[in-house]
Nucleic acid binder design. Sequence first.
DNA 1: GAGACGTGGTC
DNA 2: TGACCAAGTCT
Length: 333
Amino acid sequence: MQKLFPNERLGRKISKWYLLHGRHDLPWRKSISPYRVWISEIMLQQTQVVTAIPFFKRFMRQYPTLKSILGASEDEVLALWSGLGYYRRARYIFQTKEIIKNLYKGKFPKDFDSILSLPGIGRSTAGAIASIAHNQPFPILDTNVKRVLQRLHALPDNINDKLMWELATHIQDRKDLFPYTQGIMDLGATVCLTKEPLCKRCPLKKDCKSAFQLNTQISPRKIIQKKKMALKFYLFFDNEQFLAQKNNELSIWSGLWLLPPEIPINFVNKYTVSKDFTVTHQLSHRTLEITFVVCKMKRLLRPKTNHEYKTVKINSYFDLGMPKPITQLIKNL
DNA sequence: GAGACGTGGTC
DNA sequence: TGACCAAGTCT
Protein backbone atom coordinates (compact mmCIF):
# COMPACT_ATOMS: atom_id res chain seq x y z
CA MET A 1 0.00 0.00 0.00
CA GLN A 2 1.41 3.30 -1.10
CA LYS A 3 1.70 5.89 1.63
CA LEU A 4 -0.62 8.84 1.20
CA PHE A 5 0.73 12.34 1.04
CA PRO A 6 -0.82 14.66 3.64
CA ASN A 7 -3.47 16.04 1.30
CA GLU A 8 -3.81 13.27 -1.23
CA ARG A 9 -7.37 12.77 0.05
CA LEU A 10 -8.16 16.23 -1.32
CA GLY A 11 -6.47 15.40 -4.59
CA ARG A 12 -8.78 12.42 -4.87
CA LYS A 13 -11.77 14.73 -4.51
CA ILE A 14 -10.39 16.81 -7.34
CA SER A 15 -9.86 13.90 -9.72
CA LYS A 16 -13.38 12.65 -9.01
CA TRP A 17 -14.78 16.12 -9.56
CA TYR A 18 -12.95 16.28 -12.87
CA LEU A 19 -14.64 13.16 -14.19
CA LEU A 20 -18.04 14.76 -13.68
CA HIS A 21 -17.42 18.46 -14.19
CA GLY A 22 -14.12 18.89 -16.01
CA ARG A 23 -13.66 20.39 -19.46
CA HIS A 24 -13.40 17.15 -21.39
CA ASP A 25 -13.90 18.69 -24.81
CA LEU A 26 -10.62 20.62 -25.02
CA PRO A 27 -8.77 19.50 -28.17
CA TRP A 28 -5.50 18.69 -26.38
CA ARG A 29 -7.31 16.33 -24.04
CA LYS A 30 -8.07 14.00 -26.91
CA SER A 31 -5.56 11.53 -28.34
CA ILE A 32 -3.07 12.27 -25.61
CA SER A 33 0.56 12.15 -26.61
CA PRO A 34 3.66 13.81 -25.19
CA TYR A 35 3.86 15.87 -28.37
CA ARG A 36 0.30 17.19 -28.15
CA VAL A 37 0.59 17.87 -24.43
CA TRP A 38 3.87 19.68 -25.01
CA ILE A 39 2.54 21.98 -27.75
CA SER A 40 -0.65 22.74 -25.83
CA GLU A 41 1.17 23.45 -22.59
CA ILE A 42 3.52 25.86 -24.33
CA MET A 43 0.60 27.60 -26.04
CA LEU A 44 -1.24 27.88 -22.75
CA GLN A 45 1.60 29.65 -20.97
CA GLN A 46 0.15 33.05 -20.06
CA THR A 47 -2.58 32.46 -22.60
CA GLN A 48 -6.28 31.80 -22.16
CA VAL A 49 -7.84 28.57 -23.29
CA VAL A 50 -10.22 30.21 -25.77
CA THR A 51 -7.32 32.01 -27.40
CA ALA A 52 -5.16 28.91 -27.68
CA ILE A 53 -7.79 26.55 -29.14
CA PRO A 54 -7.77 27.73 -32.80
CA PHE A 55 -3.98 27.98 -32.78
CA PHE A 56 -3.66 24.47 -31.40
CA LYS A 57 -6.02 23.07 -34.03
CA ARG A 58 -4.18 24.83 -36.83
CA PHE A 59 -0.84 23.65 -35.47
CA MET A 60 -2.04 20.05 -35.30
CA ARG A 61 -3.43 20.19 -38.83
CA GLN A 62 -0.02 21.28 -40.07
CA TYR A 63 2.04 19.02 -37.80
CA PRO A 64 -0.13 16.19 -36.44
CA THR A 65 2.76 14.27 -34.89
CA LEU A 66 6.18 14.82 -33.41
CA LYS A 67 7.69 13.10 -36.42
CA SER A 68 5.95 15.49 -38.78
CA ILE A 69 7.45 18.58 -37.18
CA LEU A 70 11.03 17.34 -37.09
CA GLY A 71 11.78 18.76 -40.54
CA ALA A 72 10.10 22.14 -40.00
CA SER A 73 12.03 25.41 -40.25
CA GLU A 74 11.92 28.07 -37.56
CA ASP A 75 10.02 30.32 -39.97
CA GLU A 76 7.36 27.69 -40.47
CA VAL A 77 6.85 27.26 -36.75
CA LEU A 78 6.72 31.03 -36.24
CA ALA A 79 4.12 31.34 -38.99
CA LEU A 80 1.83 29.04 -37.04
CA TRP A 81 2.43 31.18 -33.96
CA SER A 82 1.53 34.40 -35.78
CA GLY A 83 -0.97 36.35 -33.70
CA LEU A 84 -0.57 34.27 -30.56
CA GLY A 85 2.16 36.34 -28.93
CA TYR A 86 5.20 35.55 -26.79
CA TYR A 87 6.93 34.40 -29.95
CA ARG A 88 9.94 33.18 -28.04
CA ARG A 89 7.79 30.15 -27.27
CA ALA A 90 7.67 29.23 -30.94
CA ARG A 91 11.43 29.53 -31.24
CA TYR A 92 11.81 27.29 -28.18
CA ILE A 93 9.56 24.75 -29.85
CA PHE A 94 11.84 24.81 -32.86
CA GLN A 95 14.91 24.41 -30.64
CA THR A 96 13.30 21.65 -28.63
CA LYS A 97 12.32 19.59 -31.65
CA GLU A 98 15.88 19.96 -32.95
CA ILE A 99 17.17 18.56 -29.65
CA ILE A 100 14.64 15.74 -29.79
CA LYS A 101 15.73 14.96 -33.33
CA ASN A 102 19.45 15.04 -32.61
CA LEU A 103 19.70 13.86 -29.02
CA TYR A 104 16.63 11.70 -28.42
CA LYS A 105 16.31 9.98 -31.80
CA GLY A 106 13.03 11.71 -32.56
CA LYS A 107 11.27 10.44 -29.43
CA PHE A 108 9.95 12.73 -26.72
CA PRO A 109 12.00 12.04 -23.57
CA LYS A 110 10.30 10.43 -20.58
CA ASP A 111 12.80 11.26 -17.90
CA PHE A 112 11.68 14.33 -15.94
CA ASP A 113 15.06 16.02 -15.86
CA SER A 114 15.45 15.54 -19.58
CA ILE A 115 12.05 17.11 -20.19
CA LEU A 116 12.88 19.97 -17.83
CA SER A 117 16.11 20.69 -19.65
CA LEU A 118 14.32 21.41 -22.92
CA PRO A 119 14.03 25.07 -24.00
CA GLY A 120 10.82 26.80 -22.94
CA ILE A 121 9.90 24.02 -20.54
CA GLY A 122 10.05 25.02 -16.89
CA ARG A 123 9.11 23.03 -13.84
CA SER A 124 5.36 23.43 -14.26
CA THR A 125 5.23 22.57 -17.95
CA ALA A 126 7.57 19.63 -17.37
CA GLY A 127 5.24 18.50 -14.58
CA ALA A 128 2.24 18.72 -16.89
CA ILE A 129 3.92 16.65 -19.59
CA ALA A 130 5.25 14.10 -17.11
CA SER A 131 1.96 13.66 -15.30
CA ILE A 132 -0.50 13.94 -18.19
CA ALA A 133 1.43 12.12 -20.90
CA HIS A 134 3.67 9.79 -18.89
CA ASN A 135 1.61 9.28 -15.74
CA GLN A 136 4.51 10.27 -13.51
CA PRO A 137 3.76 12.00 -10.18
CA PHE A 138 5.21 15.43 -10.85
CA PRO A 139 3.08 18.41 -9.82
CA ILE A 140 2.16 21.48 -11.78
CA LEU A 141 2.02 24.97 -10.37
CA ASP A 142 0.39 27.49 -12.63
CA THR A 143 -1.71 30.45 -11.55
CA ASN A 144 -4.82 28.26 -11.37
CA VAL A 145 -3.20 25.80 -9.01
CA LYS A 146 -1.61 28.60 -7.01
CA ARG A 147 -4.97 30.27 -6.51
CA VAL A 148 -6.66 27.04 -5.40
CA LEU A 149 -3.87 26.25 -2.95
CA GLN A 150 -3.65 29.78 -1.67
CA ARG A 151 -7.34 29.81 -0.84
CA LEU A 152 -7.43 26.23 0.42
CA HIS A 153 -4.80 26.99 3.04
CA ALA A 154 -5.71 30.68 3.47
CA LEU A 155 -2.18 31.71 2.69
CA PRO A 156 -1.06 35.32 2.56
CA ASP A 157 -0.17 36.87 -0.77
CA ASN A 158 3.30 36.56 -2.15
CA ILE A 159 3.93 33.31 -0.38
CA ASN A 160 7.16 31.81 -1.64
CA ASP A 161 7.19 29.23 -4.38
CA LYS A 162 9.03 26.62 -2.37
CA LEU A 163 6.07 26.11 -0.05
CA MET A 164 3.63 26.22 -2.94
CA TRP A 165 5.50 23.43 -4.72
CA GLU A 166 5.35 21.31 -1.58
CA LEU A 167 1.64 21.85 -1.26
CA ALA A 168 1.19 21.10 -4.96
CA THR A 169 3.09 17.85 -4.45
CA HIS A 170 1.18 16.76 -1.38
CA ILE A 171 -2.25 17.26 -2.86
CA GLN A 172 -1.67 15.18 -5.99
CA ASP A 173 -3.85 12.13 -6.46
CA ARG A 174 -1.10 9.78 -7.52
CA LYS A 175 -3.52 6.99 -8.30
CA ASP A 176 -5.36 9.07 -10.87
CA LEU A 177 -2.83 11.55 -12.11
CA PHE A 178 -4.49 12.44 -15.37
CA PRO A 179 -7.88 13.51 -13.98
CA TYR A 180 -6.21 15.07 -10.97
CA THR A 181 -3.83 17.22 -13.00
CA GLN A 182 -6.50 18.34 -15.45
CA GLY A 183 -8.93 18.71 -12.57
CA ILE A 184 -6.95 21.12 -10.45
CA MET A 185 -6.47 23.38 -13.46
CA ASP A 186 -10.16 23.22 -14.35
CA LEU A 187 -11.09 23.86 -10.75
CA GLY A 188 -9.04 27.03 -10.79
CA ALA A 189 -10.30 28.10 -14.18
CA THR A 190 -14.01 27.39 -13.76
CA VAL A 191 -14.80 27.37 -10.02
CA CYS A 192 -12.07 28.97 -7.96
CA LEU A 193 -12.32 32.15 -10.01
CA THR A 194 -10.05 35.08 -9.31
CA LYS A 195 -12.85 37.54 -8.60
CA GLU A 196 -15.80 35.63 -7.22
CA PRO A 197 -15.11 31.98 -6.53
CA LEU A 198 -18.11 29.66 -6.93
CA CYS A 199 -17.60 27.93 -3.59
CA LYS A 200 -20.97 26.19 -3.75
CA ARG A 201 -19.76 24.09 -6.67
CA CYS A 202 -16.33 23.36 -5.22
CA PRO A 203 -15.42 19.80 -4.26
CA LEU A 204 -13.12 21.22 -1.58
CA LYS A 205 -15.65 23.50 0.07
CA LYS A 206 -15.56 21.50 3.30
CA ASP A 207 -11.78 21.56 3.38
CA CYS A 208 -11.08 25.07 2.19
CA LYS A 209 -10.12 27.70 4.74
CA SER A 210 -11.45 30.43 2.47
CA ALA A 211 -14.72 28.81 1.41
CA PHE A 212 -17.63 31.25 1.46
CA GLN A 213 -15.37 33.88 2.98
CA LEU A 214 -15.59 37.38 1.65
CA ASN A 215 -11.94 38.05 2.03
CA THR A 216 -10.66 35.73 -0.66
CA GLN A 217 -9.38 38.33 -3.07
CA ILE A 218 -6.19 37.47 -4.79
CA SER A 219 -3.99 40.51 -4.84
CA PRO A 220 -3.39 41.88 -8.32
CA ARG A 221 -0.20 41.46 -10.20
CA LYS A 222 2.45 44.02 -9.75
CA ILE A 223 1.69 46.99 -11.94
CA ILE A 224 4.58 47.92 -14.13
CA GLN A 225 5.02 51.31 -15.64
CA LYS A 226 4.82 50.83 -19.38
CA LYS A 227 7.54 52.48 -21.37
CA LYS A 228 6.57 54.08 -24.62
CA MET A 229 8.41 53.17 -27.75
CA ALA A 230 8.12 54.70 -31.18
CA LEU A 231 8.44 52.50 -34.26
CA LYS A 232 8.24 53.33 -37.94
CA PHE A 233 7.66 50.93 -40.78
CA TYR A 234 7.44 51.36 -44.53
CA LEU A 235 5.08 49.16 -46.44
CA PHE A 236 6.38 49.01 -50.00
CA PHE A 237 4.02 47.18 -52.30
CA ASP A 238 2.83 46.80 -55.85
CA ASN A 239 -0.22 45.02 -57.24
CA GLU A 240 0.99 41.62 -56.18
CA GLN A 241 3.53 41.72 -53.42
CA PHE A 242 5.08 43.62 -50.56
CA LEU A 243 8.49 43.83 -48.97
CA ALA A 244 9.12 42.14 -45.61
CA GLN A 245 12.25 42.35 -43.49
CA LYS A 246 13.41 39.82 -40.93
CA ASN A 247 13.79 41.03 -37.37
CA ASN A 248 17.03 39.56 -36.08
CA GLU A 249 17.28 41.90 -33.10
CA LEU A 250 17.02 40.58 -29.57
CA SER A 251 13.95 42.53 -28.62
CA ILE A 252 10.23 42.43 -29.21
CA TRP A 253 9.04 40.30 -32.10
CA SER A 254 12.43 38.72 -32.38
CA GLY A 255 12.68 36.29 -35.28
CA LEU A 256 9.49 37.55 -36.90
CA TRP A 257 9.10 39.18 -40.28
CA LEU A 258 8.41 42.90 -40.07
CA LEU A 259 8.56 45.73 -42.59
CA PRO A 260 11.65 47.82 -43.38
CA PRO A 261 12.07 50.67 -40.87
CA GLU A 262 13.70 52.88 -43.47
CA ILE A 263 13.70 53.58 -47.19
CA PRO A 264 16.17 51.46 -49.14
CA ILE A 265 18.57 53.72 -50.98
CA ASN A 266 17.53 52.53 -54.42
CA PHE A 267 13.83 53.11 -53.67
CA VAL A 268 14.11 56.88 -53.53
CA ASN A 269 11.70 58.55 -55.96
CA LYS A 270 10.36 55.16 -57.04
CA TYR A 271 7.17 55.21 -54.97
CA THR A 272 4.22 57.34 -53.98
CA VAL A 273 3.02 57.58 -50.40
CA SER A 274 -0.63 56.56 -50.33
CA LYS A 275 -1.08 56.66 -46.55
CA ASP A 276 0.85 57.70 -43.48
CA PHE A 277 -0.63 57.15 -40.03
CA THR A 278 0.17 56.14 -36.46
CA VAL A 279 -1.44 53.48 -34.32
CA THR A 280 -0.83 52.56 -30.71
CA HIS A 281 -0.31 48.94 -29.85
CA GLN A 282 -0.17 47.60 -26.32
CA LEU A 283 2.27 44.95 -25.25
CA SER A 284 2.32 43.56 -21.73
CA HIS A 285 5.23 45.75 -20.77
CA ARG A 286 5.33 48.50 -23.36
CA THR A 287 3.19 50.88 -25.35
CA LEU A 288 4.14 51.01 -28.99
CA GLU A 289 3.45 54.02 -31.18
CA ILE A 290 3.74 52.59 -34.65
CA THR A 291 3.87 54.85 -37.68
CA PHE A 292 3.09 53.15 -40.95
CA VAL A 293 4.07 54.76 -44.23
CA VAL A 294 2.28 52.97 -47.04
CA CYS A 295 4.19 53.29 -50.28
CA LYS A 296 2.82 52.21 -53.61
CA MET A 297 5.28 51.21 -56.32
CA LYS A 298 4.65 50.45 -59.95
CA ARG A 299 6.76 47.40 -59.61
CA LEU A 300 8.32 46.30 -56.34
CA LEU A 301 12.11 46.50 -56.57
CA ARG A 302 14.73 44.43 -54.82
CA PRO A 303 16.13 46.62 -52.08
CA LYS A 304 19.81 47.45 -51.74
CA THR A 305 20.23 46.61 -48.09
CA ASN A 306 22.24 44.48 -45.71
CA HIS A 307 19.10 43.25 -44.00
CA GLU A 308 17.42 39.96 -44.65
CA TYR A 309 14.33 40.66 -46.71
CA LYS A 310 11.74 38.87 -48.77
CA THR A 311 9.09 39.83 -51.29
CA VAL A 312 5.78 38.29 -50.32
CA LYS A 313 2.55 37.76 -52.19
CA ILE A 314 0.00 39.99 -50.54
CA ASN A 315 -2.55 37.23 -50.11
CA SER A 316 -0.09 34.83 -48.52
CA TYR A 317 1.17 37.02 -45.67
CA PHE A 318 -0.23 34.42 -43.28
CA ASP A 319 2.52 32.00 -44.31
CA LEU A 320 4.95 34.24 -42.43
CA GLY A 321 5.56 34.78 -38.74
CA MET A 322 4.40 38.37 -38.33
CA PRO A 323 3.04 40.33 -35.36
CA LYS A 324 -0.54 41.46 -35.17
CA PRO A 325 -0.23 45.13 -36.14
CA ILE A 326 1.54 44.20 -39.36
CA THR A 327 -0.75 41.38 -40.44
CA GLN A 328 -3.61 43.78 -39.73
CA LEU A 329 -2.09 46.37 -42.03
CA ILE A 330 -1.50 43.90 -44.88
CA LYS A 331 -4.96 42.45 -44.53
CA ASN A 332 -6.49 45.87 -45.06
CA LEU A 333 -4.37 46.65 -48.06
C1' DG B 1 15.31 38.03 -8.95
C1' DA B 2 13.16 41.75 -11.42
C1' DG B 3 12.15 42.61 -15.91
C1' DA B 4 11.31 41.07 -20.62
C1' DC B 5 8.23 38.96 -23.48
C1' DG B 6 2.02 39.46 -27.02
C1' DT B 7 -2.50 39.45 -27.44
C1' DG B 8 -7.53 39.60 -26.59
C1' DG B 9 -11.28 40.17 -23.49
C1' DT B 10 -13.64 42.58 -19.71
C1' DC B 11 -15.48 46.36 -17.10
C1' DT C 1 -10.75 53.84 -22.35
C1' DG C 2 -7.14 52.53 -19.65
C1' DA C 3 -6.29 49.21 -16.22
C1' DC C 4 -6.32 44.68 -15.31
C1' DC C 5 -6.50 39.81 -16.13
C1' DA C 6 -5.41 35.04 -18.45
C1' DA C 7 -2.33 27.35 -18.28
C1' DG C 8 5.32 30.73 -17.31
C1' DT C 9 10.10 30.76 -18.64
C1' DC C 10 14.41 32.79 -19.28
C1' DT C 11 18.18 35.95 -18.26
